[in-house]
Amino acid sequence: MPTDNGSERVEVRKAYKLYIGGAFPRSESGRSYPVSDARGRFLANAALASRKDARDAVAAAYKAWPGWSARTGYNRDQILYRIAEMLEGRRDQFAAEVAAAEGLSRARAAAQVSAAIDRWVWYAGWADKLAQVLGAGNQVSGPFFNFSVPEPAGVVAAVAPRSSSLLGLVSVVAPVIVAGNACVVLAAEDRPLPAVSLAEVLATSDLPGGVVNILTGAVAEVAPWLASHFDVHGLDLAGVEDPALAADLERAAAGNLKRVLLPEREPDWTADPGLTRMRAFLEIKTVWHPVGI
C-alpha cells in the first residue's frame, strides 16, 4: 500500500521469540528455524531453543513457583480469568495462526479458538475448588482433626501436542498452573506460532513472570534435558509422538521420581477433560491436628 510520500510501506514483521521468566529472549544459541503452514509455505522463523534455554526456563519456573503456589486459589482464578479476557481480545490473530498452522478453514479455526478460551475459563474456575473436591476431612478414632489437602508438585515440564496447536496447548498449560505449579512448556515443533502469541497474552495478564515459560524448538533435542532435570517435579508427555522417545523420557524422569503423565493414546482435546490433568501434578498432604480444649 502506498504511503503519504508515495513509497511502498514496509511491513513490520514479528520476531517469534522464547518466553522465559516473563521476558522474550532469543535463543541463547542464536539459532532459529523456519516454520511453514500446513501447505508448506513459509510463515516465519521461530527461535530454536537449546538445552541452556531449557535450563534458564526451569530456573525461572523454580523461582516463580513458591510465590505462585502461595497465592490463594481465588487469586489464581482471577488471574487465569484475566488471561481468558486477553485471549478473547486477540481472537482474530489466533484464528489466523491456527488456520495457517493446521490447514483449517477460518470458521473451523475460529471454533478452535473459542473452544480454547472456553477451556481456559473452565480450568480457571477450578483454582479455588480443587481442595474441596480432591481434599477431605477424614474420620479418625482419636481427638484429632485429620485433613487431606492437595498441594502443587512444583515445576512441571510439558510437551504440547502437535495435533491441536492452541486448544491442545491450553489444555496442557492451564491444568498445571491452576493448581499452583509453575510450567515449562515446549510448543509443538512445527506449529509453534500460536504458542508464542499465547506468551504475549500471558505477559499482559497479571500472571507473574516465570509461572509459564514457553520454548519453541526440537522436542528430541530439548525434552531429554527437561526430563532429567532435578529441579523439575512433573513431566507431561502429551505431545511426544515417538514411543521410543517417550520411553526414554520416562526413564530419565525416574531419576528424581517425577510424576509422569503419559496417556496411552492422545486425548481428544475437544472432549470434557475431567480432573485427570490437574490431579496428575498434585500431591495429597494429610495433616493431623489435635482437637483443642
Partner: peptide, 9 residues
Amino acid sequence: TGHYAGHDY
C-alpha cells in the same frame, strides 16, 4: 551425573 542438578539435593 550429566543432568541438571536440583535445589533439593
